[in-house]
Design a protein around this nucleic acid. Structure first.
Lengths: 111, 111
DNA sequence: GCATTAGGGAACCTTTTGGTTTCAAATATA
DNA sequence: TATATTTGAAACCAAAAGGTTCCCTAATGC
């Protein structure tokens, strides 16, 4: 049972699948037809995406309908936003520091 | 030359490194000491992070000072935000659709 | 009933990933 | 100068990732 959303979106094919399914639900073969790789390969990607909660796979008769369930991406958005905010804040603090004290040569500071 | 930011943040160790460096710059050995894995292993992660632009490595004497440079994460934030927005919008549209027409079945066309 | 279609799943293969140990080079320091 | 510190880099390894082919089962359509 994979569950790392970061690993799930690391693969370009899986990101494409997500993009496709975000616009509309599709069955497995329809998804597979969009790629050059084999159906089992796509099925594996879909299974992984399901296991980490990014898509639903609903069986209807002999067909598997796949649909996006992208609230799991919040974890990624949150982390990246937090990192960038932290970093930007550091840069701002540095800027203020440099503006207020041009003479001090603090050689440990960066940029 | 790796350059996929999505792949870069797929590894938990690399995410930890990024988190560490977001709060303050550190030299290679200091980073390595925080982990149970060997120094060369950490050095490889740092090198990869540098190659995709998420950190800087500045050499001073015999030391390598590493600092965060997290604007590259914008690509990730943008993509995830876009997907989630798209998905939320679809959900809203679906809700309206269901409210307005309970009987129509969805078609299978893509794109 | 029979052929077709959609998908599941096993077995297998190759490349990548993440890790290791070992050694050499360069810089600091006593 | 001799020694310790910090890193770079090579060689190697095991496991995971991503892919393939082949075959089986179960709905569906005729």
């Amino acid at each position: 049972m994979q569950r790392d959303v970061f690993a799930a979106i690391a693969d370009p094919t899986r990101r494409e699948i997500i993009t496709m399914l975000a616009s509309q639900p599709l069955n497995l073969n329809t998804v597979a037809d969009k790629f050059d790789i084999s159906r089992p390969a796509v099925a594996k990607h879909l299974k992984l995406l399901k296991e980490c909660g990014l898509i639903d796979i609903e069986k209807r008769g002999r067909e598997s309908f796949c649909s996006a369930r992208l609230d799991g991406l919040k974890e990624v958005t949150d982390w990246t936003a937090k990192m960038r905010a932290f970093w930007t804040q550091k840069l701002d603090a540095l800027e203020v520091f440099l503006e207020n004290d041009q003479n001090t040569k603090q050689d440990k500071s960066y940029e």
